[in-house]
Write a protein that binds this DNA or RNA. Sequence first.
DNA 1: AAGGCGGGGGC
DNA 2: GCCCCAGCCTT
Length: 415
Amino acid sequence: MSELSSIFDPKRRQRFRRQLLSWYNTHQRDLPWRGVNDPYAVWISEIMLQQTVVAAVIPYFEKFMTRFPDLQTLANAEESEVLQYWEGLGYYSRARNIHKSAKIIVQEYQGKFPTSLKSLQKLPGIGRYTAGAICSFAYDQSAPIVEANTLRLYSRLIGLEEDPRSKSGQNQLWDFAELILPRKSPGIFNQALMDLGSLVCTPQNPACNQCPVSSACEAFLKDRQHKIPIPKVRPEITPLTDVSIAVFEGHKVMIRQRMSGERWAGLWDFPRFTLENMNGLAHPALKKRKSNGQKMLFAEHNNERSGKDDFPTGLSVDVVPRLEEYLREHAGVKASLHQFVAEIRHNVTRYKIRLLCFVAIVESADASQVSSSRLQSEEQALYRWVTVSELEAYPLSVTGRKFAKLLAQEIPSFD
DNA sequence: AAGGCGGGGGC
DNA sequence: GCCCCAGCCTT
């Protein structure tokens, strides 16, 4: 690293700060949580922004702050309603954690928002970055930050060739974040760093020609900006086929609340399972997908094809008894598969999922009263029977919501 | 150190 | 399609 012009040199550091703030004066983003020093509002925005792009957060932030304008309102709300306002944003533990934290602050901090890095990090969902963001943005404390934008920016500034996510890389980045931070207005300075990272020092094709601090950038000086930071290793994607079944008894449909430890914990869903997890079922059941993706009634299908052919999805009809058995064992309900509704494709973490949605009908009026002794593990879950229109008041995953909308719009006879 | 956790923006 | 996103928590 060149000595005299190094970003670590105190004089060069001063110049860097001036250049950055000058750029920020004319280029800063206009965001709903900018210029806000209410720690509550800063907190909510920061939690929503975790692993989530700004454009996706804005409408959620506006609606959330209208419904839960302050700590008390949030603490007094039901978790389920908080989750409703989070529906579609993903990473739902964030919503459960802010609700938990709001209650903790009210009960253990007398409703006064914590003001130190240390106390903030004790709250669930607040780590080193978020604590630093709240302290610097809301309280103008001189707390360093490292997140996606600044990780990339700092890595390039110091020419970090090793993995910035490793322990060693993290140490260097946090040290640099602290070193670069000025005494004066650290909050604005941190936001300026993030905007530079977001608008100029982008992941692909960084705009080094428009960068106010390129002369201080080790990566730029070595023409390494396209190689730094080294990209995350992408996990292998596993294809899966899930089945989701809306079980109707009259005009009511069965839903269950997903349990902690499960994906979408706290949200509600129709009984849903992964074919690959059902003993030896997936392989023979899944055949090559047919070209005709039209949905059709199972009954009609059965009649036309003598009950021996696949669903339009490539799912063998042979699987139907197993699905019904599964429903009986895991959801405690005796129902018969009635109709194929739709195939929904979606990706979640490292899975690429085809979700096959069916309607089933409870066989007799008292058939849903299956003794709980028959139920296996998952059946400690909370189940409810609701009308399709009542589903609007329950937080669902995005796929659950899509299925619910199909039930409401395309099968009005079930409501 | 590694894996889980969601959904979509933007190209 | 693909890469990535104002991270945190558990194992």
